[in-house]
Structure formats: C-alpha cells, structure tokens
C-alpha cells in the first residue's frame, strides 16, 4: 500500500526536477548556441535552435578584441588572492565566535552580520578614497584587499564549527593540542564541505564581479575578464550578440570546470546545512 502510493509521487518529483533543471540550464544552453551562430542568424525570426552554420570565429573575435590573456590572468590572481585572504581571516574569526565566550561576542557577531547586508555599492566611495590615499587605485591590490574578510564566510564557518561535538575538542585539549592546532587540524578538516562551498561562492563572485573592477581600475593592465566582455557591448548601434556570448562562454568556462570537480562537496555542504 505504502509503496504503491509512493510510486506516482516519485514520478511527479522527477518531472518537477526536470522542469526546474530546464529552467536553469536553458539560458546557459542558449548562450552556448548563440556563441556559435552567425549574426544574421542571431537576429532571425523565428529563432533557430541549433546553429545552421557553426561559426567558431566568434571566439577568436572576442579573444582578440582586447588583451584577454591579461584579463584572464588578472581575474585568477584576484579571485584566488581574495579567497586565500578570506580563508585566513574567516577561520580564526569563525572559531572564536563559535567556541569562545568573551565579552562583546554577540555584539561583534551582530556587526559582522550587518556587514553581510550592506552591498558594496553603498560603501565603495570611502573605500575608493582610502585606496586612492594609499596609492592603490588602479592596482590589483585595490581589487583584493577590500574583500580580505568575508562576513558570509565567517557566518557559514561559525555555523559548521558550532556543530562539532564538544567531546572532540576536549579530547584534543587533553592530548595537549594547542588552540592553533585544534583550529587548523581538527576544525578545518571537519568543515571541509562548507569551506569548499564558501570557496566556490567567493570565487564565482569575484570572478564575475564587474562593479568593483570598474570602479577601481583605469587601464587594461589591471582589469579583469568581465570588463573585457563589457567592452564588447556597444552603447548604441547594433550589438554583436554572437561575439558577446562567445566572450561569456570564455568567462564561465573555468567556473564550470571548478564546479564539476567540487560538485560532491557542494551537495554535501547543503545537505549538511539543511539538517
């Protein structure tokens, strides 16, 4: 009886999953397909699904429209640099918030949470002025340093550190492990799925970020990939959608690769969070 009722439910669930997947995948697919079309075909109505002529030159056009290799390199330096800094600041902060009782803890944590709610657009001006004062505007530092601490990372890690049973830490302390060692050797490995997830979020955000590099940089030498792609877009006149989409494919490609490898951890982290 029970099994019979479950069977149609499973089918409904599957159908729902497929529909939701299509909704998410379709824009990506459309981007990929557009990147291979010729411009007249892009504008054709009714639109074609598969390109009639596979035009690979769009990728070359996008790549050659600016110093793309430089953009890719800069994007990597910034996204990885930010990630390392955030990792180094978030782990101790989260450990302290999760495992120590000290005066002002809740207040400090509250302030951290507020930082989570303020978009960069609101606070960029004072940061810009500060960076300018230090002579760092138009350098990669101005893209990395302001993001050195992540409220989101601290919050996420604190939650997962809090779930570690007290016994584990007490056992480690009995074994004379230093706090430093407990933090890096016990807590961090336990929180690995969360760290991977956070790392991915952070990487994607900074890899894709357009606003901050736009504000902080003035020359191609220190600009990142999204700026290069924005430059493909004309402000007036016809937009070359096929080349723009080819640029976007180049942009998302590394993220897809990373996601492919990190997938297992991400799924685990989310199941863990929702428990």
């Amino acid at each position: 009886m029970h099994r019979l009722a479950a069977y149609p439910l499973k089918i409904v669930e599957r159908i729902l999953l497929i529909v939701v997947t299509l909704v998410f995948v379709f824009p990506f697919l459309w981007m990929m397909l557009t990147a291979f079309k010729t411009l007249p075909e892009v504008f054709r109505f009714p639109p074609t699904f598969l390109p009639e002529i596979w035009d690979f030159s769009n990728f070359m056009k996008a790549w050659e429209s600016g110093p793309f290799l430089r953009f890719v390199f800069n994007s990597f330096i910034v996204a990885v640099g930010v990630l390392i800094l955030q990792f180094l600041t978030a782990v101790p902060a989260a450990y302290a918030f999760a495992r120590y009782r000290f005066p002002g803890r809740n207040l400090l944590f509250g302030i951290t949470l507020i930082a989570l709610m303020i978009p960069p657009q609101v606070i960029f001006l004072p940061i810009y002025v500060q960076m300018s004062g230090w002579g760092l505007v138009n350098t990669l530092w101005s893209l990395i340093l302001p993001y050195g601490a992540s409220a989101f990372g601290i919050f996420l890690l604190r939650q997962s550190f809090m779930q570690v049973p007290d016994e584990v830490i007490e056992a480690a302390r009995l074994d004379q492990a230093s706090e430093w060692k407990i933090m890096w050797k016990i807590m961090v490995p336990i929180a690995k799925p969360v760290l991977v997830t956070f790392g991915l979020f952070s990487f994607i955000y900074h890899w894709n970020d357009y606003f901050w590099p736009l504000i902080m940089t003035n020359s191609d030498a220190v600009r990142t990939l999204p700026m290069g792609i924005a430059m493909l877009k004309a402000s007036e006149g016809g937009k070359i959608w096929n080349v723009i989409m080819a640029g976007n494919v180049i942009l998302v490609f590394p993220i897809l690769i990373i996601f492919f490898f990190a997938q297992r951890h991400i799924i685990r982290a989310f199941i863990y969070q929702s428990k």
Binding site: S132, V137, I215, M227
Partner: peptide
Amino acid sequence: VKAAYQGDYYENHSKVLAAVAAGN
C-alpha cells in the same frame, strides 16, 4: 592622451564623481 573605457554613460558618471572626490 591615455584613453580608458569606463563602462556605459552611467557607470562612467559615477566613476568620475568618485575619482573627483578621491582626487585622481
């Protein structure tokens, strides 16, 4: 002349105003 692309009109406007405030 060192020319630099700064986004669309609106993005350029905000950048210029921020840069004026910072002095660069």
